[in-house]
């Protein structure tokens, strides 16, 4: 005798419910199980998982497996799966929710540490750089270029210039580990006569709190950054990428 078909609605699945509540595209019935997501995902095969399998496990209520597999940290949330999906099932958001199901202190230490560092100063730097340190490095590097590179005596790297058109952000890696990498960009901005500024608050481009899926911290950092740009009355928040 043939086995009866599984009725998904009869299966327990707290995580599935959460997905339905929180996601605008959380209707998992839309998934055609075609596997297009997995076919084009570099994380397919890691930890014996792939995006399609992950969605099926959510659907079948395998909460324990879904919320404990380290695979959710091996997905880079790049959104290629949702881009390729004929039904636009938002798998990366599900991965995000699964990350969130991990007790905060058990999430990967490196990401956790980077998020916590960013909460220490209004610079939002994941490397913990303070406002004073950033200002010092920028001024120090600028002075060196002005002195040692003929033709660049008037190079500028404005900080907290109110009303500038562009508020430039910078990945912490540069001021902290390779400050000379900031210089080519300054030179380009100088040549085109761009009206730009750094802000001592909110200059750091990175945001690991989002990856950590600590929403409160993520929101805090975005608010600090947005306020920094608005306080300087800049028209554009400019990314170096």
């Amino acid at each position: 005798m043939a086995e009866e078909a599984l009725k998904v609605s009869d299966l327990k699945g707290e995580f599935r419910k959460k997905v339905r509540e929180l996601l605008p595209k959380g209707n998992l019935d839309l998934c055609l199980t075609c596997g297009t997501c997995s076919g084009g995902c570099p994380a397919t095969g890691l930890e014996g998982m792939d995006p399609r399998k992950f969605v099926r496990m959510v659907m079948l209520g395998l909460d324990e497996e879904v919320t404990t597999t380290p695979w959710v940290w091996m997905c880079s949330m790049c959104q290629r799966c949702i881009y390729a999906c004929p039904m636009s099932v938002d798998i990366p958001q599900m991965v995000g929710l699964a990350r969130q199901a991990w007790p905060r202190e058990t999430r990967p230490k490196g990401i956790l540490g980077s998020c916590d560092m960013a909460l220490r100063h209004d610079t939002c730097s994941a490397m913990g750089t303070s406002e004073e340190d950033f200002e010092f490095v920028v001024e120090d590097v600028l002075a060196e270029v002005r002195e040692e590179q003929p033709g660049w005596e008037n190079l500028e790297a404005p900080i907290n210039k109110k009303g500038a058109m562009y508020f430039l952000n910078q990945n912490s890696r540069e001021p902290v580990t390779e400050p000379e990498e900031m210089v080519p960009l300054w030179k380009i901005l100088h040549l085109v006569g761009a009206d730009w500024t750094y802000g001592t608050k909110g200059w750091a481009a990175e945001n690991y709190c989002m990856f950590l899926q600590d929403w409160e911290a993520w929101e805090h950092i975005v608010r600090v950054k947005a306020k920094a740009v608005d306080d300087l009355e800049c028209k554009y928040w400019l990314n170096t990428e």
Binding site: M74, S76, M77, P108, K109, G113
Partner: peptide, 8 residues
């Protein structure tokens, strides 16, 4: 996605 800091 935090991969570089994840330890994996």
């Amino acid at each position: 996605g935090g991969y570089l800091q994840s330890g994996y």
